[in-house]
Design a protein around this nucleic acid. Structure first.
Lengths: 113, 113
DNA sequence: GCAGATGTACGATGATCGTCGTACAATCGA
DNA sequence: TCGATTGTACGACGATCATCGTACATCTGC
C-alpha cells in the first residue's frame, strides 16, 4: 500500500490521462520522438496554458487533435475545456516528481536544434 | 564552416552511425522509446563493452540485431568487431556533448521503473 | 577441414503510426 | 437564430515498426 499523503499536489487524473505514478517512461519518450509533438511541448514549456489553435503547426486540425491526444495519454499534458477552446498545459510537476529532470533536459536538448 | 578544432574527442564516425553533430534528438528519443532498447541502453550504462549475446533479451537473435542497428543509426551506441563477436558501447561522450545531461537523466528515469 | 558460436541479411507478417478529409458537436457574438 | 470559431470523431491511406524464421557469413578451436 502506497501512502499518498506526502506526495505533493497529487490531484486525481482527468479522464483519458494517466495518474502521476502511471506515467510510463517509454510512452513519454515515444510521445516526444515526433517533431510536431516536440514542438508542441517546447511551446508549452513556458508554463502558460495554450489553446490548440494558438500553436502554429505544419499539420491539419485533425492531425493536431491526434498529437495532443498522444501527449495527453502519455501523461505529458493536461487539457481543460474553456468555452469552445481547449487549454493545454504541461504537467511539469507530475513529470518532475515521476522522472526528475527529464522534461527540462529534453526541452534544453530540443532548444539546441 | 564549423571549426572542429576545439570539439574534444570528435573522432570520425564509423560507417552506419551518425557523426556527433548529426545526432538527432527525435531519433534518439525514438530509439529510447522501445522497452527492449531501453533495457539494452541501461545495461550499457556501466560504460563497459558488451557483446550482443551477453545481454539477455526477450527476443530472438534477428530482432536483437534490429534493435542494435536502430541504436547505432540513432547515434546511441558504437559497435566494433572482435572475432565473431560484436562489442557494443554507449557513445556517452558524444551524447553528453550533443545533448548535455540527456542520457544520464533518461537512465536515471529508467532505473525508477 | 570441420563443427560450433556469434551475429547479419532478407523476406514476411501483423500492428502501429502520421496524415488527411469530411462530418459533426459545442460555444460565442451579432 | 444564425454564422463563425474551435476542436473532435471516424474512416482511410501509405509508411514505418517490431517480430520472427531461415539462410548465410565469419571467426575460433579441435
Amino acid at each position: 500500500m502506497i501512502d499518498t499523503q506526502f506526495i505533493p499536489e497529487a490531484r486525481a487524473p482527468a479522464p483519458g490521462e494517466p495518474g502521476r505514478e502511471a506515467i510510463e517512461l517509454a510512452a513519454v519518450l515515444h510521445a516526444l520522438s515526433d517533431p510536431v509533438r516536440l514542438q508542441i511541448v517546447a511551446e508549452l514549456g513556458d508554463r502558460v496554458e495554450h489553446t490548440c489553435g494558438s500553436i502554429k503547426l505544419p499539420v491539419t486540425k485533425s492531425t493536431c487533435t491526434h498529437h495532443f491526444r498522444v501527449l495527453r495519454e502519455a501523461g505529458l499534458i493536461h487539457q481543460r475545456q474553456e468555452g469552445t477552446s481547449r487549454l493545454n498545459s504541461l504537467r511539469s510537476d507530475d513529470l518532475e516528481t515521476r522522472f526528475p529532470g527529464l522534461l527540462d533536459t529534453v526541452l534544453r536538448a530540443a532548444a539546441l536544434g
